[in-house]
């Protein structure tokens, strides 16, 4: 999760906007030429909407492209583009919010209480695990004296033997703590918020982009 930056729209509006664009990506037809044009446009809209920094944008696109490269070979460019666009929309939305803003936004989401609580905890634990992963990586670097690409490779090899057992142990303890503290019995209250023009703009703008993307992707262009 990157350090969040100032954004004039409320976190809930940004989260709703991101969710709408994500739906647009998932629903848009990736088997048509129009779909192949539209999907990157939706991802770009999310980056602009969330005011993602240029450097983060470039890193995100590079990492996503590398990750989805095998999909291009094994499946199809359409599937890869759809996955990449959806990933960019999701990461751009989440990374622009920061843990507290994301928490505040999720509490207000129009979802069943249990779903909100689960998502809240997944987001919270994801950040805890990210930091744990960084510590494991640092320990590997220090103890193994490897860094750079080889360090990343060593870390990847350590995932099933070091990271996964730790995650399972932690999940067990966190589950106990949730039981002990009565997590799930109530949904934490959200502080009241007044929607402004920009918040509506973000939500309806995203809705417009998503609807247009779905409609345009259905057109068969040669």
């Amino acid at each position: 999760m990157t350090v969040p930056h100032a954004h004039p729209a409320h976190p809930l509006a940004r989260l709703c906007g991101g969710a709408i664009l994500l739906c647009g990506c998932l629903v848009a037809d990736h088997t048509t030429v129009a779909g192949l044009i539209v999907l990157p446009a939706v991802a770009l809209s999310a980056l602009l909407l969330q005011r993602t920094r240029l450097t983060s944008m470039a890193r995100l696109m590079l990492a996503g492209t590398l990750f989805y490269l095998p999909v291009v070979v094994l499946a199809s460019p359409g599937v890869a583009l759809k996955g990449l666009s959806a990933a960019i929309v999701g990461v751009a939305t989440v990374s622009s919010l920061g843990p507290q803003a994301l928490h505040d936004a999720i509490i207000r989401m129009p979802l069943p209480a249990l779903v909100r609580l689960l998502v809240l905890q997944m987001v919270h634990q994801a950040e805890v695990l990210r930091r744990e992963s960084v510590r494991i990586h640092q320990a590997l670097v220090v103890r193994g004296g490897v860094d750079g690409i080889r360090g990343i490779w060593e870390f990847a090899k350590a995932i099933p033997v070091v990271w996964l057992p730790r995650v399972l142990f932690r999940a067990d303890r966190v589950g106990m703590a949730m039981d002990m503290r009565g997590y799930g019995a109530i949904v934490p209250a959200a502080r009241s918020v007044r929607w402004r023009g920009i918040d509506f703009g973000v939500v309806f703008g995203s809705l417009g982009v998503a609807v247009a993307a779905v409609w345009f992707s259905a057109l068969v262009l040669i």
């Binding site: 507290q100 928490h103 919270h124 106990m176 703590a177 503290r181």
Partner: peptide, 9 residues
């Protein structure tokens, strides 16, 4: 203690 801290604030 980290295991029982369930909120981001």
């Amino acid at each position: 203690p980290e295991d029982q801290l369930l909120f981001p604030r």
